[in-house]
Design a protein around this nucleic acid. Structure first.
Lengths: 342, 342
DNA sequence: CAAAGTCTTGCAATCGATTGCGTTAGTTTC
DNA sequence: GAAACTAACGCAATCGATTGCAAGACTTTG
């Protein structure tokens, strides 16, 4: 609403002059410093509002020796060609952006080829930000640990591996892998494949959950049924084709992501197999398209937006000097038609 | 590789002391100011490098009265529930982030409910950034214009509507709509529907292209075959169902996005129709999943990452005081099986 | 009434870099 | 050899806010 008057207020001094007080008093008044009398404080805050004056954040940050910037690093494995267009990332980014905005922080977006995470140290990403959020730890646990050593505020979305010096927020990967596999087993499937690369701890945990569920049914993971492909879909397609054509028995597939699952479904259909009649498929992430594929995709839902918020609260907590524990978010099996149920 | 010695260099003064020059000289030397002798310059730059000193960007920005921040605003139409998880957005964001990083700018991410775009004026988004990139103009052309009036550096990804005061980067929407429709016509389809809301100028332009192609074949757009639904997919599904069930003739559909197209395909399949045999479908955007759906989706490809770069160059150009013209990016028809070709 | 507290507020240094202007030393010109 | 330049560098103000310390105005206490 702000009814601006004629006088332009460009900085704190102007405001102070207008109110007939010193810059110092104006500063304290706007910051609700209790040492200032209520009368003065209200007067100044009202004046500021009515003149549409808001403090110069950059100057403030400069004086306070902070940046009000949190950097977000997407770990990219160039080799495996996983890239940011996976819808999963954007959901998470949305959650992060919202949470940061609420706390008056800016977002510095970067993506790092996993080979040189340490390079970030000489980069604005880490030098000129108050904290860093890593999305995915890829295979760089060691490097991340090194970064954590030099007392940076950082949090990683990934898997709580042993002997780590950084804080981790994770989904329940083992639980997710277990739940989806168990679901397929309960539907009577026995020849269950695992599709997706396990070269990072998160997927490895999902694979463990998968093995655990199989074990409970007296089965073990037949390596022939494990397609250890990166996220890149051309490759996945080829490998699945080879596998089916080489006659390996298969009546279900657990996939490490919805994108892999959707590609899997379309590959299977192309090969003349019916989903879920011949092969049931379960994905991971519940991206928005999952409900609209044909057949609709059974998947593991992680509340990714919420995860983004948790990540933010974690870094900000560290900045405040708090001791921040790891967090694991529950995941949920969303049953749709592709798994044969529904 | 920086071989740090014992002396810690925290600021320019330290560096100057070490080199035995004044702070002023050090500053100019690092900024390649020609008034400094080559000898001195090289000495200081070498010293800075060997001690791992890099300038404090925030202090520099403060002094230079700038922010080194560009804000990116995603226009969200809450009502229509279009949200950031559309993969399209992330690709563009990636392009923007990369380009900004190259120019040493930070990215401030925000999304604005379209109702109160003007609110951004009192927000860090516009107050504490050097420029703003809007993704999508939704129905807020007027408000964007108002923002543009008060000499902000801004560029909009959208459609070059008439009488606008802001710079626009756009895809060739009319051309895209025309190309996809013409493709279907050439394949012999005549009952071509248009799926997607035209409440924003971009989609309206695609619709115009659609009509133009139909016109060339002596057809006109039967309003019954136009499904004016927002991006939200539940609704789309219902409406398509109603339409098919009410017996409207239909042998092809032009969709305003791949997400709509994929939902359309799965709805049609659910209704017992074959794609592309009974109904051919064309999407828009060429998101990564488009190639992996079943059948693979024919679509219009826009080089979205590149568009991101153009957007960045446009704002940065404005900051430099250049006159920046609008840009239109070519689009390309990617033919896959869903259209009946392939 | 003087001494001792309270409350409020102001003074001035400070964060780290940039830059107009002045100064010094060296070079050229006549 | 003095005047006039030129090249290279230093001095100090400046950007806008915060904050330790001191000081002024009152109030309370003995």
């Amino acid at each position: 609403m702000a009814k601006p008057t004629d006088t332009k207020i460009a900085n704190l001094q102007d405001l102070a002059d207008l109110a007939g007080v010193s810059r110092a008093t104006a500063s304290r008044a706007l910051n609700d410093n209790p040492v200032i009398s209520e009368k003065t404080r209200e007067k100044l805050q009202a004046l500021a509002k009515s003149h549409g004056y808001s403090i110069n954040q950059k100057a403030r940050d400069f004086r306070l020796q902070r940046t009000s910037v949190i950097s977000v690093v997407f770990m990219l494995d160039i080799a495996s060609e996983q890239h940011m267009s996976d819808p999963f990332f954007l959901d998470m980014l949305g959650g992060i952006a919202d949470a940061l905005a609420e706390h008056n922080y800016d977002l510095l977006l970067a993506h790092a080829p996993v080979e040189d995470v340490l390079e970030l140290r000489n980069n604005r990403v880490m030098q000129q930000s108050d904290g860093t959020i890593f999305i995915g730890q890829a295979q760089q646990h060691g490097q991340l640990n090194e970064l954590a050593e030099d007392d940076t505020n950082m949090v990683v979305w990934g898997y709580p591996v042993r002997d780590k010096s950084y804080v981790v927020v994770s989904g329940d990967n083992a639980g997710g892998g277990y739940a989806s596999t168990k679901h397929l087993l309960e539907l009577g499937r026995r020849q269950i494949a695992f599709f997706g690369s396990v070269d990072n701890p998160e997927n490895a945990a999902r694979h463990e959950g998968y093995l655990k569920a199989l074990g409970e049914y007296g089965l073990d993971g037949n390596p022939e049924r494990m397609v250890d492909v990166p996220f890149e879909m051309h490759r996945a397609r080829e490998v699945i084709k080879e596998m089916v054509e080489s006659g390996i028995d298969l009546d279900a597939a657990v996939c490490v992501s919805d994108v892999v699952a959707l590609a899997t479904i379309s590959t299977l259909q192309e090969l003349g197999l019916e989903v879920p009649k011949d092969v049931a498929v379960v994905g991971y992430d519940d991206i928005s398209l999952a409900a609209y594929s044909n057949p609709p995709l059974t998947t593991i839902r992680q509340n990714i937006r919420h995860a983004g918020r948790i990540l933010v609260e974690s870094v900000l907590g560290q900045i405040q000097g708090e001791h921040v524990p790891d967090t694991m978010l529950a995941s949920e099996l969303v049953i749709r038609k592709s798994s044969g149920a529904g």
